[in-house]
Design a protein around this nucleic acid. Structure first.
Length: 759
RNA sequence: GGGCGCAUAGCUCAGCUGGUAGAGCGUUUCGUUGACAUCGAAAAGGUCUCAGGUUCAAGUCCUGAUGCGCCCACCA
């Protein structure tokens, strides 16, 4: 044996041994209770970060249950990560001087698919390097045909059951990404912007967005505000930069009389509050901004200008016309921005597909209340969960991107003359217009439906458009919806769909045992998996949700590229080995609080792996000196069970038994850190520093009594430690003599209950 | 605006159902050619944020204050 443990000499070979031996693939056995975990599917193209390294928690659970004899499935997957991936791809296009608008959607999809193919296995290979005992024979990619088919079927079923509907509402729209987002996908930023006090008919009112004035259809004040009460219900004439226009005065509780002058201009098509007010008072909607973030034709000479430029132009014009009273330059407010690219969100009125969530949310709440699913370790996450689901709004599942499963809705062109399409014709020129006009055989130019369909970029159907829902091309004169599903709509069904893709799996492994994740996707993913899981199967997708902590640097700062404090897990594995990194992540991580990770800590755990290695080396050396051949090693427990004379031997045996029980108990309670610390302390300070030092000479005896005890204790430590540090323990296990010739990964768990331990 | 969490040794944190403070790293001193310097032995270092309260007894329970962090909602 080498003087130190060198991870790189062993890791790859050991992992291959586990994988090719089929040890990571469970044998379905109806007489046994299975244990199953679905891996939170990482972006298949993203290199691993520390968050992924924390999948160690799941590996500990999986390895522990496997050793306890439970048929154990840990199912891996990779996510196409719709918006993320398309965003990255578009950045690449930009560098090449192109944009998504240069391609029809099918071509664009194909290009992204090829792009993704190049590093599709990045994440997969890295997870193997960390030793994760995933069953790769059951790997699924979120865009594989089988999964996609099931996602479409879910949509069709939801539609049939009346859970899916189309509505034209104000949505969060990113004009750069060209897509709508759910509320969860936007960020709020504090920003200082000018607050303009403008003369507005008989009023002066404060606004940050004078350029939306063209979309105004009302003014609103608080019902109790005496200053404005006399105007209630009246039509007010307002002088604008394009001449006078009329708005209706309404009273609404939502108006804060303290803000500005206590009166607000109502722009229903471009502001969330105004949208609500307009709905309550029946004010009309008038669109002044289009999907590209430019002003529409209703703005006259400002049409085509981008929002920011338009604001400056409008303000300048207002100044000229003496419509601007003053500007408050110190106004600070929070602005919604795209979580992806940081562009200011433009509230936009578009028809979108929605899922009715109230009834689904109720079932998801009830399931946790009645204990069908348990959220550990902390009650506060349960509270967060309830609160979010209780206040949930209907879920907008349409995204205007191409990288994702396309919504299986088809619009008959004959019955929907108002369908607006953007497409690239056979000569490569971009065309846009109403379908009826484009298909018409006029003198100018006519297009065939198949040409439009092939070159299609985007289709916009009016809210009242006729459509059919079908997972196959209905044939004939139809155009398919160009919106794709929100990525989370797909991942919300992940446990069901992945298990259903192999016969027998769903019946055996569903509901899964544990879902382990970070709290930041509790709403995005966990709550939605609960909703769709229960809807699709009638049972919850997992029995326990375990929330693990976030990895931060040693100053407690969140790791981020901009701060430059990111620790790359693979670099650490290269440097110190997978075991060291894994142990460093688990050791000292209290449930629910952040995990402070530093290179020193990882180094410390590398030292521990080495300590362990050297205990093994000592045993091996003692064995040589004792002159016993490995073949007839007198294992403890074979015939000398109650014959021990030495009090040290007796004591260490009773202590290791106790340790087994304590570790098992801590694993049962998801107290991984405690379990790890107990093993660490015992191994280093009790076994090595005391027992082994004091009895050093006794292990070299040719008629040994102590050596079998030592080996027995060490075997147990290897087992207890294997879920945490799988590589070094497996190598030591294969190096030392043992009773049964089975790899450690399949050996039996020492529960410490006094039951006989085999293997 | 609503809600939540944290505050213990220089640093990162344990301390679960209340019984006179613990670990790792760091620091200091000493030791060690046969398991391991990726080591061993020892030492220094804490009015457990503050103020009240409950209790025979409080880092541990309760109330309040201060500081730091987070989540949700929202800002015309």
């Amino acid at each position: 044996m080498d003087k130190t443990f060198n991870p790189h000499q062993h890791e790859e070979r050991i992992y291959r041994m586990w994988e090719s031996g089929g040890y990571l693939t469970p044998q379905i056995d109806i007489s046994k209770q299975p244990f199953s975990i679905i891996l939170p599917l990482p972006n298949a193209n993203d290199p691993m970060h520390m968050g992924h390294a924390l999948f160690t928690v799941q590996d500990i659970l999986a390895r522990w249950h496997r050793m306890m004899g439970d048929p154990t499935l840990w199912l891996p997957g990779g996510d196409h990560a719709g918006i993320e991936t398309q965003f990255v791809f578009e950045k690449k296009l930009t560098k090449e001087g192109k944009s998504r608008f240069d391609f029809d959607r099918e071509t664009l999809f194909r290009m992204i698919a090829e792009f993704v193919e190049q590093n599709k296995n990045v994440n997969r290979d890295q997870m193997k390097r960390l030793g994760f005992s995933l069953d790769w024979t059951r790997y699924h990619y979120s865009l594989e045909p089988e999964i996609q088919k099931m996602v479409l079927e879910t949509f069709i079923r939801l539609h049939k059951d009346g859970y899916v509907y189309r509505a034209e509402r104000l949505v969060n729209f990113c004009t750069k990404c060209g897509t709508a987002f759910s509320d969860l996908e936007i960020k709020h930023l504090e920003r200082q912007d000018p607050l303009y006090y403008i003369r507005y008919g008989p009023f002066v009112l404060a606004t940050t967005r004078p350029e939306t004035k063209f979309g105004d259809t009302g003014v609103a004040f608080h019902p109790a505000d005496k200053r404005y009460r006399k105007y209630l219900g009246k039509e007010i004439e307002v002088m604008g930069v394009n001449g006078p226009f009329r708005v209706t005065a309404v009273a609404d509780e939502a108006i804060d009389p303290e803000f500005g002058t206590g009166i607000e201009k109502v722009t229903p098509a471009h502001d969330f509050l105004d949208y609500e007010i307009a709905k309550r008072h029946g004010l009309p909607f008038k669109k002044a901004i289009d999907f590209t973030g430019r002003l529409t034709s209703v703005t006259g000479r400002f049409a085509g200008m981008k929002v920011k430029a338009a604001r400056e132009a409008v303000v300048a014009e207002m100044q000229k016309m003496n419509l601007l009273e003053r500007i408050d330059e110190n106004y600070v407010h929070s602005v919604a921005v795209c979580y992806r690219c940081g562009t200011t969100i433009e509230p936009m009125l578009i028809p979108q597909w929605y899922v009715k969530t109230k009834p689904l949310a109720k079932a998801a709440i009830d399931a946790v209340k009645r204990g069908s699913t348990r959220i550990v370790p902390l009650k506060r996450f349960e509270k967060m969960y309830f609160e979010w689901l209780e206040n949930i709004e209907d879920w907008n599942i349409s995204r205007q991107i191409v990288w994702g499963p396309r919504i299986p809705v088809w619009y008959p062109v004959d019955k929907n003359p108002e369908l607006e399409v953007t497409f690239i014709d056979k000569n490569g020129a971009k065309q846009n217009g109403k379908i009826s006009a484009l298909l018409e055989n006029t003198d100018k130019q006519a297009f065939t439906l198949s040409e439009i369909s092939q070159g299609l970029q985007q289709l916009r159907a009016p809210l009242d458009a006729e459509f059919i829902v079908s997972n196959t091309d209905p044939g004939g004169k139809y155009l398919q919806e160009t919106d794709t599903f929100d990525t989370w709509f797909l991942s919300a069904q992940w446990p069901v769909n992945t298990l259903k893709s192999k016969p027998g799996d769903f019946e055996y492994f569903y509901p899964t045992s544990v879902l382990d994740t970070l709290w930041d996707i509790l709403f995005f993913w966990v709550a939605r998996m609960m909703m769709l899981g229960i809807y699709l199967t009638g049972d919850v997708p997992f029995r326990t949700v375990h929330i693990h902590s976030r990895v931060v640097d040693r100053q407690g700062q969140k790791m981020s590229k901009s701060k430059g404090n990111v620790v790359n897990p693979i670099e650490m594995v290269d440097k110190y080995g997978a075991d060291a990194l894994r142990m460093a992540l688990i050791y000292g991580a209290a449930p629910g609080s952040d995990i402070a990770l530093s290179e020193e800590k990882i180094r410390g755990m590398r030292n521990f792996a080495n300590k362990l290695w050297n205990i093994g080396r000592f045993i091996s050396g003692s064995l040589d000196q004792s002159g016993i051949s490995a073949g007839d090693f007198p294992f403890f427990g074979d015939d000398r069970k109650n014959k021990l004379k030495n009090p040290d031997d007796k004591r260490i045996l009773s202590e290791i038994n106790k340790l087994c029980a304590v570790v098992t108990r801590n694993l049962e309670r998801y107290r991984f850190s405690d379990a790890a610390q107990d093993i660490y302390d015992f191994t280093w300070h009790r076994l090595a520093d005391e027992y082994l030092e004091i009895n050093k000479e006794r292990f070299r005896d040719s008629n040994p009594e102590a050596l079998p005890v030592l080996l027995h204790v060490f075997h147990r430590i290897l087992k207890l430690l294997h879920p945490f540090m799988p590589f070094v323990t497996e190598v030591l296990w294969e190096t030392l003599p043992k009773k049964y010739d089975k790899p450690l990964v399949l050996s039996s768990w020492p529960s410490g209950s006094g039951k006989p331990v085999k293997g």
